[in-house]
């Protein structure tokens, strides 16, 4: 079994395609939608966690790319800038999935990319703009 988290960017003409359904039915994958958004100009963005056999996973991702969807591994999409972070811990209790942790002895904040679901809550609220999303 393999598992990946990816960001899918859909051009306008693909927004109405039932891609998650095809990943499940045709490629035998489990799909968990972490975040979905259609912007005013109707491009779509979907953050999903996909698991299944390694081979099926690769084929599924190839299918997405072939029909014109940009597939980016989630971990590459968020950037925690340690030189900007002051370790105030403000983000810690606001992150819905606990991607930020505090070493309570020294009160320093660490960020676990693997847990991040790209909800962008921290990007908005960090007083020091220490978390950036790169598109």
């Amino acid at each position: 079994m393999a598992r990946i988290r990816v960001v899918l960017d859909f051009p306008k003409w693909l927004v109405e395609q039932p891609v998650t359904c095809r990943l499940i039915r045709d490629y035998d994958l489990e799909v968990n939608i972490l975040k979905a958004k259609v912007t005013p100009r109707e491009e779509g963005r979907l953050v999903i966690e996909v698991s299944g056999k390694k081979k099926s996973l690769d084929k599924g991702m190839d299918y997405l790319k072939d029909i014109g969807i940009r597939v980016t591994p989630l971990a590459q999409d968020i950037n925690f800038q340690e030189d900007r972070c002051t370790h105030c811990t403000y983000c810690v209790s606001l992150c819905p999935v606990g991607a930020f942790d505090v070493d309570r002895g020294i009160m320093e904040v660490t960020f676990d990319k693997e847990k991040c679901i790209l909800c962008e809550q921290c990007v908005k609220i960090c007083p020091y703009k220490a978390i950036r999303i790169q598109f």
């Binding site: 370790h87 105030c88 811990t89 983000c91 810690v92 309570r104």
Partner: peptide
């Protein structure tokens, strides 16, 4: 600083704005 407090019987998550580090 432990990350949670209890207020009126309710457990609440805490965050700092001041940096202890």
């Amino acid at each position: 600083k432990s990350g949670k407090i209890v207020v009126q019987g309710k457990e609440i998550k805490t965050s700092g704005l001041s940096s202890y580090a």
